[in-house]
Design a protein around this nucleic acid. Sequence first.
DNA 1: AGCTTGACGGTGA
DNA 2: GTCACCGCCAAGC
Length: 136
Amino acid sequence: MPRSEEAAAWTYAVYNAVREVPHGKVTSYGHIARLLGKPECPRQVGVSLKALLSATAQPDAHYNNSNVPWQRIINAKGGISPRGANGASQQATALEAEGVQVTRGALGEYTIDFTTYGWFPDRLPSDLSSEEEDEE
DNA sequence: AGCTTGACGGTGA
DNA sequence: GTCACCGCCAAGC
């Protein structure tokens, strides 16, 4: 498991938030971070998702690439980060399989229309009834 | 043990 | 409109 309880909580929160993303919809790293109360840490969202593919972040294999729709998380520009390139195409394919229209650029860039497929709630559905504490 | 990079994003120039 | 810098935390070297 992650190095600290705090880090683990963050990681789980990320996975939980990602699972809230409806089928056929996409959201951004930054939005997930915002929902978790860490608008300045979109990077950590990516870090956590990265760990999803590694055994490091799977203390009990409760979260893995099968039950967490990481494919629905793209960057704020509406595109899939280059990453390993190969993984990007895989993500694009997975999204298309859900009915999401993915525009393929000549440079291997993938773009999704947020206007049509974007999912940006102010608060997580499951977060409304309980959990968290911050208000304004 | 320390330094750099990385699935990003917002703001300032 | 584009380019550069900063923040955050963990993993890799």
